Simulated assay, not measured.
Amino acid sequence: MLKERTLVITPDVLDSMITDYHWMVNAIKEMRAEMVIGAKTAQYGIVATLPKAVGGVGDPIMQEAIRRSKNIKRVAEYEKKLLEVQMLLERVTGDRELQVLNWMLDGKSKRWIATNMGLSHTHIQNIKNNIVIQMINI
């Protein structure tokens, strides 16, 4: 039985999850789009009696299947992180914090947010730190 890794949320981990949220959403979309579910076809006649390659080292189709299976695992890991952030969104209070958080989740930079809110880059960083504290504290 495989052990499922538990996600330990520290302020630094949550900070990076908020920062990476936008690209993880896009990565999930792209990886799901390229996932193709194929069907096995049975072999009949003399083809069924021929020896098969062991390990799939020389088989490019097998290598592609292995690569895509790794993508499936990565998609599951990204989805888990996204769900963690989404579960903690309710804890954020304050209009300013919510606006900064929503723009960050949309992939906007702190400098862009600072320019559009008329605040300094440092002030946006302080707001982000407050957001992380609100999300972690119960």
Rank of each mutant, 00 (worst) to 15 (best):
G118T: 08
K40T: 14
A65R: 09
T19H: 05
T122I: 07
T6W: 02
I61D: 15
A65G: 10
K73T: 09
V57C: 02
L82I: 13
Q99F: 04
V100S: 07
R67W: 02
V75C: 07
S69G: 03
D59V: 00
S120V: 10
S120R: 04
L88T: 00
V8I: 06
M135R: 02
V57M: 12
E90A: 07
D12P: 01
V92Q: 04
A76I: 07
E90L: 05
K70N: 13
Q125V: 14
W112K: 12
A39G: 15
L14S: 00
N130W: 02
I66E: 12
G118F: 08
E90M: 04
P11L: 03
Q63I: 01
E4M: 09
N126T: 12
A33E: 13
L7Y: 07
E97T: 00
T115Q: 13
D15V: 00
W23E: 11
V100T: 10
Q63R: 15
I18V: 09
G56A: 04
I131C: 04
L7C: 05
V92E: 03
A39M: 15
I66V: 13
V25E: 03
M62R: 09
Q134D: 05
K40V: 10
T41Q: 13
A114N: 11
E64M: 06
Q99A: 03
T10A: 01
I127W: 02
M87N: 15
K70V: 03
A114V: 11
W23L: 09
M62E: 11
Q125P: 01
M31I: 08
N116P: 08
E77I: 08
R68L: 04
V132C: 03
A114E: 04
V25A: 01
D15N: 11
T115L: 15
D20M: 06
E30T: 03
P60S: 07
R5S: 04
D12R: 08
V25P: 00
V54D: 08
K110L: 08
N116R: 15
L14I: 02
L82D: 03
T6C: 01
G56Q: 09
K70C: 06
G55N: 15
Y44M: 11
T122D: 10
A27H: 12
Q125K: 13
K40W: 05
N26L: 13
E97F: 01
A33W: 03
G38N: 11
Q86I: 01
M35S: 08
V92Y: 03
K52G: 06
P51R: 04
E77G: 08
N129R: 13
L101I: 06
D15T: 11
Y21I: 00
G56I: 04
R5F: 08
E79M: 09
T122G: 12
G94T: 00
L83A: 10
G107D: 05
T6A: 06
K128Y: 12
I124H: 00
I72T: 11
M17N: 05
N116F: 14
Q125C: 14
D95H: 07
N129D: 15
E34Y: 05
K73L: 08
L7K: 13
E79G: 03
T93P: 04
V13G: 00
Q63S: 05
L119D: 06
L101Y: 02
I131V: 12
G58F: 10
I9A: 09
G45F: 02
E4V: 13
